[in-house]
Simulated assay, not measured.
Amino acid sequence: MALRWMIYGAYGYSGKLIARQAKKRGYSPILAGRNGVTLAEFARHLELPFREFSLQDVNSIKQQLADVDLVVNCAGPFSHTAAPLMHACIASKTHYLDITGEIDVFEYAHSLSAKAAEAGIVLCPGAGFDVIPTDCVAARLNAQMPDATHLALGFDSASRMSRGTAKTSVERLGQGGAARINGTIETVPLAWKAREIDFGAGKKMAMTIPWGDVATAYYTTEIPNIEVYIPASPRLVKRLRRLNPFRRVFNWQWVQRKLKAKIEANSEGPDSKERDRNPTYVWGEIRNARGEHREMRVKVKNGYSLTAEGAVELAVYTLEHPHPGGFYTPSRLYGAKLLDKYIIKS
Rank of each mutant, 00 (worst) to 15 (best):
D69P: 15
T38H: 06
G176V: 01
L39I: 03
R275T: 00
G202N: 00
E320S: 13
F246W: 09
F106M: 08
L153S: 12
G200K: 07
R247H: 04
G154V: 04
N73M: 00
G9P: 04
T280W: 03
V249G: 10
R195N: 00
R242Q: 12
L173R: 02
R25I: 09
G15E: 11
I185N: 10
I343D: 15
A19Q: 04
N278H: 06
D130K: 07
C89A: 07
Y13C: 00
D98N: 08
I344D: 13
V105I: 06
G12N: 00
T134Y: 05
T187L: 03
K203F: 02
I181W: 04
D340E: 15
F106G: 09
E313A: 15
S272G: 09
M161E: 14
F327T: 04
R160D: 11
L333P: 09
E227F: 04
A191D: 10
M207L: 02
Q253A: 07
E292V: 01
L39C: 05
K258N: 06
L319N: 06
V298L: 01
N225G: 13
I209V: 14
G202W: 00
V300N: 12
G9W: 00
A232C: 09
A43Q: 06
F327L: 03
T280C: 13
S113Y: 00
N278L: 03
C124M: 09
F53D: 15
H110L: 07
R332D: 06
A194E: 14
L333T: 04
Y328I: 05
A138T: 10
P322Q: 03
T208I: 02
H45E: 07
H110D: 10
L48W: 06
N225E: 11
A217L: 09
I209H: 11
E222I: 03
L17N: 08
G101L: 04
R277D: 10
K341G: 12
W192D: 15
G177L: 11
L333R: 01
P210W: 01
V37Q: 15
D213W: 04
A215E: 11
M86P: 12
L65F: 06
D57T: 09
D104Y: 01
R277V: 01
A336P: 14
D156N: 08
L70P: 12
T318C: 10
R235D: 13
A82D: 13
L236W: 08
